[in-house]
Structures are given as C-alpha cells and as structure tokens.
Nucleic acid binder design. Structure first.
Lengths: 218, 218
DNA sequence: GCGGCCTCAGTTGTGCACAACTTTGCAGCA
DNA sequence: TGCTGCAAAGTTGTGCACAACTGAGGCCGC
C-alpha cells in the first residue's frame, strides 16, 4: 500500500510545521531542499511536495534561484486575522459542539499538569508546545470538520506572532495567565459544558491580542 | 523573472479549479497528469505541483497507480460546512467591511445584467458561472484577507453540492430566486450598506441549504 | 579608491526515465 | 461455465540530471 508513503510525507509535514511554528526555524531563515531531503533520507522530489504544502499554508516562500525562506510574521494583517480567529473560537461552541467524554477529561488533566510544570519552571519552548497542543485540543471540541481545518490553518499562520512577542513580554506573567485559562477551561470540561469552554477560549484570544496591541503601542 | 512562470501555474490552477467547480470535470472523473501536461505544453512535474494544490483543497484525490480522481461531492459534511459558510458570510459584513465605491456599483450592475439575461434564457452552466463570480464579488466586500481566503476555500468545496442538485431542481425557479437575491444585494450596494449586503447573502445561503434539505428528504 | 561587470557557487524549477502500484482482460484449468 | 492466476497496459511516485536564476565576491577599468 502507498498509504505508508503518504503517512511518511504527512509526518515530515508535521515535523517541519512544528519547527516553523515553534520558531526552531526562525522567520527569514533559508531552508535547503537538499539538506532536508538528506535529513529524511529522501530525494528532493517528495520533499518539494511537502514544502509546497507549507508554502500554500503561508509559512514558506520559495524564490527561484534564491532559496526557500521561512515567511516573516504577518504583523500588518495581525489584528484582522486575530479577529477572525476569535470568531471561529466562539463558533466551536455553537456549531456541532461534541459531548465531553472521559477521554476529554483525562486529556484535560494532562494539560493542567503540564501548565503546573510550566509555572514551576517557565520555558519559552515548552510554553509554545503546550500552547499548540492545547489549541488542537480546543479545536477538537467541535464536530464541524471544516471549522476545525480553518481554525488550525489560521492558528499556524498566527502562532508565531504571539510567540515572538512573548520573549519580550514577561514569560512568567504570560505563563500564569495561560495556566489560569487552562484551569478555567478545565472546569468547564469537567462540567461537560463545551460551549463555555469555547467561550472562555474566545475571551482569552481577545485578551491576548489586546495585550499584544498595548505592547506594540508602548 | 520567474514570476511569469508562477503566474502561468496560477492560471492553470484557476482553469482546473473552474472546470471542477463548474462540473466540466464531473465528480469521480479520472484526470491524467500526462494529458493535462500535454494540453498546457508542460512536463508532468509542474502540473503535479498544481494538482497537489487542488488535492490539498479537497477537490482531487490522487491514488498511486490508479489515477487522480475528482472528489465526490461531500454530502455527509454538507450541513455542517454550509453552517460555517453561513457564519462566514455574516462576518463579511462585520469584520472590516469595505466602503462601497463606484467600481463596486458598476460591477454590481454587471451582475444584475447577467442575472436578467439568465432569467430570459436559463442555462445551468451560465448559472454556475454567475454564481461563482458573484460569490467572489461578495467576498471582496471585506478587507479581512484571512476571511476572504477561508470563504473562498469553503465555497470551492461546496459549490458542486448545490450545482449537482440544481439540475434536478427547477432551474428556472432557482434562477428567479437567485436574480431576486442579486437585486436585493444590488440595492444594498447602491445605498452603500456593506453589512446589509452581507446579511442578505447570509440569509440566502441559509435558505439555499434549507431548500436542499427539503429536496433530499422528499 | 570606487563603480560596474563578470564569473562562479549555490539554489529552485523542469524534464525525463524508471520504480511502485492498480486495474483490466485474457488464458488456462477445474 | 465459472474461477483463478497472470501478464500487460496505464497510472502516480521517486530519483536524478540539467536548465534557469540569484547573490556574492573578485577583477578590471576609470
């Protein structure tokens, strides 16, 4: 079956996506197709298929003869994109919210534990990872596949905005705010109130962009 | 400059996209990379780049050794996807609506003319084209780039649902309904009320999915 | 000293041959 | 007659060589 080959490419896509979104590949970095191909022990051809996807997702920019560059964080569109993310976060609770199961509660407990660990010893990288994984969890609370897809797509486009700012903001303070958000949503999940969870998420995204704006105005 | 080469691929993408969305390539049709490459006088390699995009957009499905097939209309997810489209249509009027200009009014007049012509002699193909062009116009009423992109993406995924049903519904009746929608939105545009235009659009998408549901229940 | 040009190394884009795989149809056999 | 196996044709996926292009460094003319 060729499904395993497709899975392999999907896995490489995931890997590179994480590296970009977690700033392992900083914006404006030049990636080499040949180097990536060597790393994953493939030829350039299938790698180019993966890079093309990342380019379509707005995370890479290939320039003939020059190189493949990690896109810069789109600060100009920031406010508008965040506004849309905000709306979508709210829709998660209104369009086909899923019923909370024991698996959800277990997963939620895992996030609360990770948040506690982060609070004990703040670390930008682990912060970013927790943020990404938790966002995916939040998106999984709707049964609307298109909404999940759009939300994730937007998240990948904007995740780096906040992440690049956080190093200049107070990491400890942001960790505390994030831990509080997770605690609040955990409570909603325990009560089985999916819509409340989504609304809290929406509020925090809104607050986050407000903090960012205040920061950039200073 | 390699921009012209990129434009060329973009143009091919547009062409194939239209063919799929306008049912020129019917669902389940098998496309041949070699044949398309021959048509556009390119090798398979850049064509594969284009087909990959269409696959990522959910319009094609490549199977190793078997062929690349036009995806079937996603009837199962229909209700949920349309629900999201509905919400996004409403957001067009609320998130960064653009100010109506003379160009908008001229363009709108063009749509009203085309609608009148369609009403005189109903034709499924021209109906589909008008629908697609008018949707793009509607999307252009927001300054929120992400919202435009998401709306279009969703439109391409669902356009065929309605289009395949319309041949079995009453084409003349649907044309009349569509012409009325265009007239109503035209009035809003003339008055410079972007939000009203978006709201009317939203209502009509909702009505459309209701008609579809009634039809499938019969 | 400085500006323009050119060469060269390095990168992405394209074409082509072959590998991997699926489907179809036919031949052979029970 | 029906079924199984196989071969062949056709398709997408991969690897590789080369074309197209960019940017940097050095060289030459002034």
């Amino acid at each position: 079956m060729s499904a395993e080959a497709k899975d392999r490419l999907e896995q490489i896509y995931e890997t590179l996506l994480r590296r970009i979104c977690l700033l392992e590949y900083a914006p404006r970095t030049r990636l080499s197709e040949a180097q990536i191909a060597a790393e994953f022990d493939l030829s350039r051809t299938p790698i180019r298929r993966v890079l093309a996807r990342l380019e379509d997702a707005g995370l890479l920019d290939s320039q003939h003869g020059a190189g493949t560059f990690v896109t810069d964080v789109p600060l100009g569109e920031m406010a508008r994109t965040y506004a849309l993310r905000c709306e979508l976060a709210g829709l998660v609770g209104r369009l086909s919210p899923v019923a909370i199961t024991a698996a959800h509660r277990r997963e939620m407990q895992g996030f609360e534990d990770r948040a506690a660990a982060l609070l004990a010893t703040p670390d930008a990288r682990r912060f970013a990872e927790l943020n990404m994984d938790f966002f995916r969890f939040g998106v999984s609370l709707t049964g609307n596949e298109a909404l999940r897809e759009m939300s994730l797509r937007l998240y990948y486009q904007t995740a780096r905005i906040w992440l690049t700012s956080i190093t200049r903001l107070d990491l400890a303070a942001e960790s505390e705010i994030f831990a509080r958000e997770i605690a609040q949503i955990g409570e909603a999940i325990r009560l089985g109130d999916t819509q409340a969870a989504a609304t809290i998420r929406q509020a925090h995204i809104s607050l986050c962009v407000t903090r960012l704006r205040q920061f950039s105005q200073e």
